[in-house]
Design a protein around this nucleic acid. Sequence first.
DNA 1: CTGACTGCAAAAGGTTTGCAAAAAG
DNA 2: CTTTTTGCAAACCTTTTGCAGTCAG
Lengths: 136, 136
Amino acid sequence: MNWDNKLRQLGYRITPQRQLVLEAIEELKHATPEQILGAVSKKMTGINLSTIYRTLEVLEKVGLVSHSHIGHGAPTYHSLEEETHIHLVCSECESVQSISADIMEYTVRALRADRAFEVDVSHVTFHGLCDKCSKK
Amino acid sequence: MNWDNKLRQLGYRITPQRQLVLEAIEELKHATPEQILGAVSKKMTGINLSTIYRTLEVLEKVGLVSHSHIGHGAPTYHSLEEETHIHLVCSECESVQSISADIMEYTVRALRADRAFEVDVSHVTFHGLCDKCSKK
DNA sequence: CTGACTGCAAAAGGTTTGCAAAAAG
DNA sequence: CTTTTTGCAAACCTTTTGCAGTCAG
């Protein structure tokens, strides 16, 4: 299903703001609300940060985007149209890398079997030490 | 090694505030900075929220506590002296459950082998749907 | 038309910082 | 005695909210 129908299906309306936010997320790959505002502002004047927040909430509810907490600060949003991946954040150097969600397969199955818990894999972020920082 | 030596070893000093914050975390199991302030205030008057924050930073640096982002709001801190566990947070009903970190074993090994990335397991939180909410 | 959506401004968290006084080693 | 740590107040950053006007359907 295309993006606008996902919105309509739940009674939401199609607006230029929503379209532009979605495009910005797809273009930026990983973006904070502030960065999205920056990107959207280039194509439309007068858009407000609170609109970004409200839009992200809606887009997340209809399953078009997801967010993860990469740093201590603002969360970053990414499109769900791409292959599901998880984030590896280094606590030392703050670097971020992505890896296929396949690595989570066993864990996901175990949680489903043991607790009937359905993990939202697109939301997963692992913190730890990257290769360079763990050598030290 | 006991808690005070972990601090001294890195050149930090032992203060009543630090001891009380540590005790509060061990007692509360999972607590936000605000909740820790509440607990410590019962035993010592005049303690300030900013002291809690600074103390948590130090305790985390010396490896006595760790935090995870359970909700959208404040992070929750827990002691590292207890058995390592991970958190399962339901996006629907906000419930939180703990489960042994054993479930992560395969993933941890794979990340180590593939990327030389050393996951901080005590920091992991999975979001998703709990058994009750996924039935609906 | 009507209800959903937006911009604006203000409020509400949550966290950090500068500074002088107090306490640890 | 020296250096770290603390309390206090103010600043800061991110997110939420109320409201009136605007726009999508």
